[in-house]
């Protein structure tokens, strides 16, 4: 298995995530895209770790996993709050920063 190939795969996954991030209007859709990106990062880390034999990559990947999960949790909580106060989760509706 070629390291470059794996890295390219991770890069591709990341870019798909970026595309989703820019495209989605629904907040959950954005969270999904962020998940994709985080996943890509993890693949990257683990690949390097396997390549070099150092466990550091996997350690780091574990950390990011945990942090990402925490982020999703809090994000969803905010989303629910948002939904309660305005009834929709379309990101476009959050215009408070305009004025």
């Amino acid at each position: 298995m070629n390291l470059s190939a794996i890295l390219l795969l991770a890069a591709g996954l990341f870019c798909v995530g970026v595309y989703g991030l820019l495209t989605r209007r629904n907040a959950i859709g954005i969270l999904l895209s962020v998940e994709l990106m985080a996943n890509a990062v993890n693949i990257n880390l683990v690949a390097f770790s396997a390549n070099s034999g150092s466990p550091l990559g996997q350690v780091f990947a574990l950390f990011t996993m945990a942090v990402t999960v925490a982020e999703v949790v809090v994000g969803l909580a905010i989303l629910i709050l948002l939904f309660r106060s305005r009834g929709g989760v379309l990101v476009d509706a959050a215009q408070e920063l305009k004025r």
Partner: peptide, 10 residues
């Protein structure tokens, strides 16, 4: 400053 979050993400 569109106030639009997506623009900021962009």
């Amino acid at each position: 400053q569109t106030g639009n979050v997506r623009d900021y993400v962009l």
